[in-house]
Each structure stands twice: as structure tokens, then as C-alpha cells.
């Protein structure tokens, strides 16, 4: 693996390899000393040009468990505020001797651009605009795999603001590469303008789709990015697409609910549904560390 910019860089075999390696690293999190020396002497920088709590902490925890040195950069407290360009920032940080950069940016494609600017660093996409969030999709697959044994043949619903969701774009690629069938359920105003080439079905009626689903992936309505204007009201959105307690009762036994967080309880997911055992939200967070360890290891450490 040169960089991880998109799930498309991995393909089925690459995804399966990440999941296998993550399985081995998951155990590290339950040891009394949660650390392995695998990446000792390596340096990893997290470059977050957009705010994030869980993804940054997860990557930094993963790097530290691998004994890598971690340099943390956030745009809010940096020379970006003084007008330094992304390119100069990246070149400056690489010059400090980094081996990998985890990049998050509000603009789609920045990690792809960064991969052209670096000389020898590996680049990991930590989420770029509406484009992709590959490690999120990998940890979703890992979590579902853990609960169901395999992904192939599962029916996955991706529900909500697909249009503005980098998680959805990565999930569609990852789940379909692993042999699941993916159905997008969303108000048509929150679907991407074109789904040409997407390996998905589209449904409008969540009630009708739920009983058939093995996995329900809920997406946040990104109100801070103006997604609110794409539906008449949050109330109507919740009435048609929220996973309410009534709808949760339509789920087949064994069906799973995932959410990339942060959850807006009462909008896309009812509070009591979020706390049901088949809602895997906290397990996703725990697995996120193992999956990101696997990604950093495969990028920097070679084969196991």
C-alpha cells in the first residue's frame, strides 16, 4: 500500500488484509500494557485542517499503541491561521522527518493532492469533504464482521444524508467490494446528483426496507453544512427516516445498527434505540483503534 486515499485503493483483497491485521491488533487493547513496539522510531503526524474529536484521538491512540512518535497538528492553532497554504504546511511537516501523515480537510481531494506533494511520506485520508473516510468504512466492516462472521451476502442499508457524506461513499465501496448488497435510503434531495456507476439500490421507504436488512448504517444529517435546507424540517426528516423505537421493532433478529458518530439523538436515531445491544456504536469506536493500527502498520511496517 502506498497511501490510503480511497477504499478503491484497497480492493477486496486489501480490505480483507486490513481486517485480518486489525483482528490481531484488537487483542492488544485488552492487555494490561496496551502497547507493542512495532513502529518504534517511526513518526506519524495527524494533520487536521478540520475539527474532529474521535478520528484524531483514534489515530493518535493507534499510533501510540504501535509505539510510534505522534505529532499533532490542528489548523486552529497553527500558521494556517497566518495564511500558510496547505501545501507549505505539508512540506514543512514532512521536512521534520515524518513517515506518515493522516490528513483531514473540509475540501474533497486534499489527501489526494497531499499525496502528490509529499516526497516519501505515506498519506492516510482521515476524511475529506464529502469524498471519503476510508478508515471509518473499514472499522464498520470490521465491526459487522466481528458480529456476523462475514460481510458477503449481507443486506446493508445506508440511511440518511448520503449526498454530503464521506462515510457513505467509503461504505458503499467497502461493503460492495466484500460482497454485500447496499441500498441507499434517503430523501431524494439528499442523494448524490448522479449514482451512475454506484453499486447500489435506492429506496425511499425505510419501513419497507428495514425488515430485510442485516445492517442499518445511519448517517448524521449534517445540519452544520446546510443539509437542513434539503428537507422541510428535522421533524419531517425524523418522521420519514429516523430510526425510532417503532422502526427498530421492524428489524430482523440479529440485525445490526451502526453509526459513525457523532450521533444526534432524537434526529436520525432515537435515544433508546442508540442504547440497544444491536447498536454497535461504542464497539465501532473501540474497533476503530485496532483498524487504524492495522492501516498504519501495513503502510509503514510491511507484511506481518
Amino acid at each position: 500500500m502506498t497511501h490510503l486515499l480511497s477504499i478503491a485503493d484497497l480492493g477486496r483483497e486489501g480490505i480483507e488484509e486490513v481486517l485480518r491485521v486489525a483482528e490481531a491488533f484488537a487483542e492488544v487493547g485488552s492487555r494490561p500494557v496496551r502497547k507493542v513496539p512495532t513502529l518504534r522510531g517511526r513518526a506519524i503526524a495527524t494533520l487536521f485542517f478540520e475539527d474532529s474529536t474521535r478520528t484524531r484521538l483514534s489515530f493518535e491512540t493507534a499510533a501510540k499503541r504501535l509505539s510510534a512518535d505522534v505529532l499533532s497538528f490542528s489548523a486552529a492553532s497553527s500558521s494556517v491561521k497566518k495564511g500558510e497554504s496547505v501545501r507549505d504546511t505539508v512540506e514543512t511537516i514532512e521536512a521534520m522527518g515524518m513517515d506518515a501523515l493522516v490528513v483531514r480537510h473540509a475540501s474533497a481531494g486534499v489527501p489526494v493532492q497531499v499525496s502528490r506533494w509529499v516526497k516519501r511520506c505515506k498519506v492516510v485520508n482521515g476524511g475529506d469533504g464529502w469524498h471519503e473516510h476510508p478508515t471509518q468504512a473499514l472499522l464498520d466492516c470490521f465491526t459487522v464482521c466481528q458480529a456476523r462472521g462475514a460481510i458477503g451476502g449481507l443486506r446493508v442499508l445506508v440511511v440518511g444524508d448520503v449526498r454530503h457524506s464521506r462515510v457513505a461513499r467509503s461504505q458503499v465501496l467497502a461493503y460492495s467490494a466484500l460482497g454485500a448488497s447496499v441500498t441507499l435510503v434517503a430523501p431524494s434531495s439528499l442523494l448524490p446528483p448522479s449514482l451512475e456507476g454506484w453499486p447500489v439500490e435506492v429506496a425511499d421507504d425505510l419501513d419497507a426496507a428495514l425488515p430485510e436488512a442485516d445492517v442499518v448504517s445511519l448517517l448524521r444529517l449534517q445540519a452544520e453544512r446546510g443539509s437542513g435546507a434539503f428537507v422541510p424540517s428535522l421533524r419531517e426528516y425524523t418522521a420519514r427516516y429516523g430510526l425510532t423505537a417503532r422502526r427498530a421493532a421492524l428489524l430482523a433478529p440479529g440485525a445490526l445498527v451502526t453509526h459513525p458518530g457523532p450521533m444526534i439523538r432524537g434526529v436520525e436515531i432515537a435515544s433508546d434505540v442508540a442504547d440497544l445491544p444491536q447498536a454497535l456504536v461504542t464497539r465501532q469506536v473501540a474497533n476503530g483503534v485496532a483498524v487504524r493500527m492495522a492501516v498504519l502498520f501495513l503502510l509503514l511496517g510491511g507484511a506481518m
Binding site: G109, W130, E132, R166, P192, P193, S194, L195, G197, W198
Partner: peptide, 15 residues
């Protein structure tokens, strides 16, 4: 341009 490519790339499009 708003279309298949903008949708895939996650870039806002001009229809």
C-alpha cells in the same frame, strides 16, 4: 460540473 464525476468525487457541482 454536476454529474457522475462530481457525485463520486464528493465535490459540489454546477448543474
Amino acid at each position: 460540473h454536476e454529474g457522475a464525476w462530481s457525485s463520486r468525487l464528493g465535490l459540489p457541482g454546477v448543474p
